[in-house]
């Protein structure tokens, strides 16, 4: 089976069980929004899928391959890119260097040049700041840089952890718009973790609602948006 399939996944942080047996499937090309309150286990889920965190049990497959237990640097080579929580850039490096980082491992240097150009077209503001250190960027620009770096690895699956964190509403809309654009243009599969439930669901195909390490509801994005019970309990409006 292709796409992303997670089965009976359990992940512990020492004595704390952050993810307690969850299963779901994201079809290729779909955008799945993962929603839940603080401490629901969303970040832990993404960290497990990208290889940063060990799972205690269960399985996860991407494009038919089992991915748990693999190292993040190898999963990147399998087309999985993780943009981690809190603007995943290296502040001490310049914008240019941060972007270059995403292409170091790739053999096809011509394509690295090409995709870098694409990224700079997508985020022109980065192009104007290439030799600036990343810590001088605004929050939104940093998020663009983080996504840009991930794209340079030519991923098939992107794991995005709260791209809207700490951004102004207008910038959030922009970022979400870009994400939506990207996946259609590049045919990406995306797992998007968000607190901003409505914005995320609006661009998502399916939604996964988590609470205390379990999935409490799944469905198409439209179903979830229109479910009044969920609104009250988890979506917060």
């Amino acid at each position: 089976m292709s796409g992303l399939t997670v089965k009976d996944l359990v992940v512990d942080h020492g004595a704390i069980t952050a993810i307690n047996g969850i299963s779901f499937t994201v079809e290729p090309g779909q955008l799945a929004a993962v929603i839940g309150s603080n401490g629901a286990g969303k970040t832990t889920l993404l960290r497990t899928l990208s290889g940063l965190k060990h799972a205690s049990s269960g399985s996860a497959q991407w494009s038919g391959e089992y991915i748990l237990g693999k190292k993040p640097e190898n999963l990147v080579r399998h087309g999985i890119s993780h943009v981690s929580e809190g603007k995943s850039v290296i502040p001490e490096l310049t914008v240019k260097e941060n972007l270059a980082l995403g292409g170091i491992w790739r053999k096809d240097k011509k394509d690295v040049v090409a995709v870098t150009k694409e990224v700079l077209e997508l985020f022109p503001r980065l192009g104007e700041r290439l030799s600036q250190r990343a810590d001088t960027l605004s929050g939104g620009e940093r998020q663009m840089l983080a996504i840009g770096r991930a794209l340079i690895s030519r991923p098939k699956l992107i794991l995005l952890d709260e791209p809207s964190l700490g951004l102004a509403p207008l910038v959030i809309e922009q970022i979400f718009h870009t994400i939506d654009q990207l996946r259609h243009k590049l045919g990406l599969t995306i797992v998007l973790v968000e607190q901003n439930a409505m914005s995320a669901l609006r661009i998502a195909d399916i939604g996964i609602i988590m609470n205390l390490g379990k999935i409490v509801a799944t469905g198409t994005a439209t179903e979830l948006i229109n479910d009044p019970a969920l609104h009250a309990a988890y979506l917060g409006y």
Binding site: S50, L52, E73, S81
Partner: peptide, 17 residues
């Protein structure tokens, strides 16, 4: 570049491959 990235932010460096 890899040396510097790994020194500053090993986790992000790993995620970058």
């Amino acid at each position: 570049l890899a040396l510097r990235a790994a020194a500053f932010q090993p986790e992000i460096a790993r995620l970058a491959g």
